[in-house]
Write a protein that binds this DNA or RNA. Structure first.
Lengths: 199, 199
DNA sequence: TGAAAATTTAACCATTTAGTTAATCTTTTT
DNA sequence: AAAAAGATTAACTAAATGGTTAAATTTTCA
């Protein structure tokens, strides 16, 4: 590993903050994770707040940008949706703690979101557009497409965010069974959404 | 108000813990909220951990028990589902911070859940049963009904848990519009679920 | 090479926080 | 009414935590 000290701090902070959140994380813990003296965190980032903001912006931006492209290809709405769901689930699966981390930190301090929205380059409207035409086409013109988008996101995100609870309650705490369950979800969710929008 | 000191502490702790979580809450803050000396919290509850456990168990149990009955009436599965959704959304609407609070605290310490499950008297299987017959009836015998239940819960809970993010991203931070949106959700979700299970 | 600049460390500081204690006030009991 | 038990308070303690500092080490480069 030939990464710089600053990068090591950044990566360590990233891991710790995602797991424990801004308030739960300890500077000493991050220093230990990075394998160095705590004073170095302040030498490079001045304060915990500063370090957190840098890391959070990075996590937030990267997370949402990773699926953004899937909505720009020149294929049918249906195909776009399929690719989006596949990629989104893959993304969460390789960053299982990130959705809840983002939700928690935005709830803790919603102010940060406003600035982040513009700087990040994410385009949440793109996901809406998939359903905008689709819904009008099928005599459901009264239906706000945001209902479909938020239903979709809820179905995809919830099983990860509430995993410990759901795994215990509905899977007898069988980790393997729950992983199998998560792998089936892509197709289940596609199915549900299609059945709904294709009147 | 003629509630006892212990009850005042309990109620204050309840409010503060729900808003800030176990780690974010301060004993002094709870004492202030209850309008009394901090030493009294220890006099009645010995430790923060103790106070939290008592409060958490109470919140967890009451929350889930409040909708449990809706699944025991002697009506059709469809009607049961309608009543469940109506009551569940009402329940969240009057306790908007509780779902995320429960999810966060269980993620922080999943051990508590195991004991809670048995002592609380909740019966999560009851919700499954609604779909168990329904699904087999419609040539979807391969479909695990847990997928429907978790989709349902995700669609209902997610808009509340991720409210600040969604309100900003999809509603231009218009609180009134988002409240209107939430009120429409009961029917939208019923519709989605029915379209899916009624092959 | 050697001085200046950048990096790293150990020790320290100030504040916050859960928890304790001993004294005071209030209620109950005899 | 007096003693005992219970409730409440202010002041305190010990540990944790974010942040600082001055000295030591390493790197840069004239």
């Amino acid at each position: 590993m030939d990464s710089s000290t600053e990068e090591k701090i950044y990566e360590a902070a990233r891991r710790i903050f995602i797991l424990k959140g801004m308030e739960g994380a300890r500077m000493q813990e991050i220093a230990d994770e990075a394998g160095m003296n705590k004073a170095l965190l302040h030498y490079y980032f001045r304060s915990k707040e500063n370090l957190f903001k840098a890391v959070f912006k990075d996590i937030f931006t990267k997370f949402f940008l990773k699926v953004k492209d899937t909505l720009f290809s020149d294929v049918s709405a249906k195909e776009k949706l399929i690719v989006f769901i596949d990629n989104y689930v893959d993304l969460i699966q390789s960053n299982p703690y990130v959705p809840q981390f983002i939700i928690n930190e935005i709830n803790r301090d919603p102010k940060v979101l406003k600035t982040l929205m513009f700087e990040s380059g994410i385009e949440p409207q793109k996901l809406l557009e998939i359903f905008l035409n689709k819904v009008q086409l099928n005599n459901q013109s009264k239906l706000d497409p945001r209902h479909i988008v938020i239903s979709l996101l809820g179905m995809l995100v919830f099983p990860f965010v509430a995993r410990p609870l759901l795994q215990m309650v509905y899977f007898n705490d069988d980790k393997v069974a729950y992983d199998r369950f998560l792998n089936e979800r892509k197709d289940i969710v596609k199915n549900m959404i299609f059945k709904f929008i294709e009147a």
